[in-house]
């Protein structure tokens, strides 16, 4: 049994896939890893490149070609076919630090924790800038039980796809099935398995290099505004999941998932705030959003209504969205910046 399955979802990334594969197909680890490449109906030369690598590393690479179904469908397919003890998703435009990857695989052989967490870098490759994301409150190489963690130690940083390596058994137990043809399904991946995670280990090797800056990337603000219905769909899924599972979750897990939901809600509200070009649409969105929240978990509703945009908006019946959404949003951002500076 291989120690690690790396799933690489591929969709039109001919420009980047070599960098991704070169970074993990290393002599030292070839025997220990399984690289599962799922092509999501690419229309460019990605398949040609993958086949070239498959020929070179037949023992390591498993190639699955399927019709386009979105990022979620590739992860679902990957989970069905994975055989390694651990499971990690590596997007085909990202890459891993080769040197740290070798150390990571070596360490992984001795691990039995449900979740392994590594720091990662966001790489703004267009201008050579990088940002390190880590969890400074947790000690490296120490085994933690999820239920012993404290929510304040997370400091609003949750375990994202780039930082987490799950035990495949955990993901299977969670019956993880991501939405198809939907963006932001990584939030499902970040939340759903948590219920079954007991032990966690933090490692110091920063592994993942998260490529940022491609204009078509879903993290780009314009793309986020365009893909807002998907954001809405995933957000609502998380709330319904939380409400459904709340009674089965420990206190810390409840707090953890609520933290993720609140962070996502913050992005969601910002997206509504940025939809200033179509004020009719924005007005409808914010009204529906509030109505939806009111009928769900009251704890989450109260928390979200503390956000200034919702709090002050509610007082004027969200007419601010109709008349001066952009100005209002800007004023709130400015006020929060001033507040933050004063608090410092």
């Amino acid at each position: 049994m291989k120690i690690l399955t790396i799933l690489i979802p591929v969709y039109n990334t001919e420009k980047y896939i070599r960098r991704c594969l070169d970074s993990i197909l290393l002599d030292e680890v070839l025997k220990d890893i399984e690289v599962l490449i799922v092509n999501d109906g690419s229309k460019d030369n990605s398949v040609k490149i993958i086949k070239e690598y498959e020929k070179k590393y037949p023992e390591t690479i498993v190639f699955i070609d399927k019709e386009n179904g979105g990022h979620g469908s590739t992860i679902n397919k990957g989970l069905e076919n994975a055989t390694g003890k651990y499971f990690k998703v590596l997007d085909s435009d990202d890459w891993l630090d080769s040197c740290n990857f070798i150390k990571f695989v070596k360490k992984l052989k001795k691990c039995d924790e449900d979740l392994i967490v590594n720091p990662y870098y966001q790489e703004y490759v267009y201008n050579g800038v990088q940002l390190l994301f880590e969890y400074p409150k947790f000690e490296f190489d120490k085994i933690y039980h999820f239920n012993d963690l404290k929510i304040k130690d997370f400091n609003n940083f949750y375990f994202v796809m780039a930082s987490s390596t799950y035990k495949l058994e955990v993901l299977k137990k969670a019956k993880l099935k991501l939405f198809e043809k939907t963006f932001y399904v990584d939030m499902q991946y970040n939340v759903v398995p948590v219920k079954y995670v007991d032990t966690i280990k933090f490692e110091k090797e920063n592994l993942y290099r998260y490529f940022i800056g491609r204009p078509t990337q879903s993290m780009n603000v314009d793309s986020m505004i365009r893909n807002m219905p998907d954001h809405d769909k995933v957000f609502k899924f998380l709330i319904s999941y939380y409400m459904q599972e709340k009674s089965n979750l420990s206190k810390i897990k409840q707090e953890y998932i609520r933290m993720i939901i609140l962070l996502m809600a913050y992005t969601h509200i910002n997206l509504i705030g940025m939809q200033w070009k179509n004020r009719h649409e924005s007005y409808k969105l914010v009204k529906n959003f509030e109505r939806y929240l009111r009928n769900t978990d009251q704890e989450i509703y109260q928390e979200i209504m503390k956000y200034s945009y919702m709090k002050y908006g509610k007082k004027v019946g969200y007419l601010n969205v109709w008349f001066c959404n952009k100005l209002f949003n800007k004023a709130l951002r400015f006020a929060s910046r001033v507040k933050r500076r004063i608090c410092k």
């Binding site: 970074s23 890459w95 790489e123 267009y126 990088q130 290099r209």
Partner: peptide, 20 residues
Amino acid sequence: LSYSAEEIKNYLYLILEEGF
């Protein structure tokens, strides 16, 4: 390669250590 020092480093590592 791009202007990312991390990406360049990775490939230098591959050239030196992995015979890329």
